[in-house]
Design a protein around this nucleic acid. Structure first.
Lengths: 213, 213
DNA sequence: ACCGGCCCTAAGCGACCGCTCAGCTTCGGC
DNA sequence: GCCGAAGCTGAGCGGTCGCTTAGGGCCGGT
């Protein structure tokens, strides 16, 4: 079903860009804690403890607790946007590109659920300027999906009366996977991605791809 | 498009069941504060202040801050379940009942967004026994939607390969409206409800109702 | 051998949290 | 006129929060 973007750049712990090592350990610990309890319910002592350090060590690498959330949100949105772009720029018609985009986007939200949860649901905990920066990234995410749908409408592959509303619904559907997906549940991220790609193609009125007929 | 459940029981401030008056004012204040900032970021002083009382007044009507959230969540889930049941037990075929259920459910999540936000996104802040009680209500919500979809499959109105997965996706789509809906945005709750009912009928492979052809 | 910079810790500061309590006011029943 | 219950407030308790500070090991360069 998919061509590229299978593991668009190291799916296992994609924090190699964070250095030094202690800063990365703190950031990974923060992702886990924020995802489990939420930003406001997480204490700096908890984050430092998970990383095997004293509470004060956090402030050597990050100015505040909010900076940790900002860095996580920024990196996560970059990754999510990259996944969508890879699928969007892939070959094939709008049908195939939309299926690719949805399945890989959903796979990320399910497989890397802790990160996705923080990225998608803790936006309001950021200050105004940090939130604005992240919102700009979200607009680009929206534009990427809307572009594929517009292509499909233009080529006659899709039948969509309300492009903006449908784009919103497609993204909403994918993002909410981070809320309900259960690692110990009956479905793998791949299965949810395939199911959702099929549902989204139905939403836009596309003919199912040959492989499914 | 719809028959019953238009305003299934007083859409404007449906907290008349909470007495005495001071307790209701505190609860409404808590809903607003929890929706704006989240449960953990809201202080009891903030709730009492919004209700025009001193911080100590809260503890005359509620034992703890968590009891406030529990009461809100319980009432909200009851209301949501009632809306779905009204639509589910309405007349007509599965297509019409599913469209009714989705449009009224979405209308509630959009129009009463502050309540829905607290109800759907602050579940983890409850203690184990309160959370279990709410989870039981959610299972009944899920069963209500799944029942309509199963009816549609049995009658041949729907074409759904994965009933459980599709039920999950439909509910997820509706619930996430509480996250993104903007009161000052371009769409009214009614419009979003109609759009989503159409999208969901496409997801289950139903023929559009006559009114839309 | 000595130094300066880098990480890190132990201790703790001031602020604010959820929540309590003694006492004040209000009001219906008699 | 008096009383007890109900509703509410001002003050504050113990605890925990985000964050700071002083100083200790470690290490490469000289």
């Amino acid at each position: 079903m998919s061509t590229a973007a299978e593991t668009a750049g190291g799916d296992i712990e994609p924090w190699e860009e964070v250095t030094p090592d202690a800063a990365r350990r703190l950031l990974v610990a923060a992702v886990e804690a924020f995802a489990e309890r939420g930003y406001h319910a997480t204490t700096t002592r908890d984050i430092a403890g998970r990383a095997g350090m004293s509470p004060a060590a956090l402030y050597i690498h990050y100015k505040t607790k909010e900076e940790l959330l900002h860095r996580i949100s920024r990196i996560g949105h970059d990754r999510a946007l990259g996944i969508l772009r890879t699928a969007s720029q892939g070959g094939g018609g709008a049908t195939e590109r939309l299926a690719d985009a949805v399945s890989s986007f959903v796979r990320w939200h399910a497989g890397r659920r802790t990160t996705a949860r923080v990225v998608q649901y803790e936006l309001d905990a950021l200050g105004p300027e940090a939130r604005d920066e992240i919102l700009a990234l979200r607009r680009r995410v929206d534009a990427e999906v809307r572009g594929i749908i517009e292509d499909g409408v233009a080529s006659g592959e899709f039948d969509v009366p309300d492009v903006h509303g449908t784009t919103l619904a497609v993204l909403s559907l994918c993002i909410d996977v981070a809320r309900w997906f259960n690692v110990n549940g009956p479905r793998t991220p791949d299965e949810v991605g395939a199911l959702y790609a099929d549902l989204v193609l139905r939403m836009v009125g596309a003919e199912p791809p040959l492989a499914q007929r």
